[in-house]
């Protein structure tokens, strides 16, 4: 599968990574190279194979643990805001969002 410029533009938008127009072709070529190498997987027969669930399921010998419904966290606003580039009072500030 070779990626075209428009597809790269679309996935860059989805991923919120600004790719300058001038870099789109080179990026497309690079990603296409990786994808065409990945496509050797088409030769692996996976008929009737049950996919793993996110790579993590009972086949990994693990079981999901549950937590009791207890409030034992929160109330740490200073820690939550400590690294904010724009800590605005008790809030995180971002450019205005228009609904």
């Amino acid at each position: 599968m070779s990626l075209d410029k428009a597809t790269v533009r679309k996935i860059a938008t989805l991923a919120r990574i600004d790719v300058p127009e001038a870099d789109l072709d080179a990026t497309a070529a690079r990603l296409s190279g990786i994808l065409s190498w990945i496509e050797q997987l088409n030769e692996v027969n996976t008929d009737g194979v049950q996919p793993m669930s996110g790579g993590l399921d009972e086949s990994m010998g693990l079981k999901l643990g549950w937590r009791a419904d207890v409030v034992n966290d929160g109330g740490i606003r200073d820690k939550v805001l400590a690294n904010a580039p724009d800590a605005n009072g008790a809030f995180f500030g971002v450019p205005k969002v228009v609904e």
Binding site: V44, T46, V49, M52, G54, S59
Partner: peptide, 10 residues
């Protein structure tokens, strides 16, 4: 496809 192959590798 990758998740299926992962099952095969397992």
């Amino acid at each position: 496809k990758a998740q299926k192959i992962r099952a095969l590798i397992l």
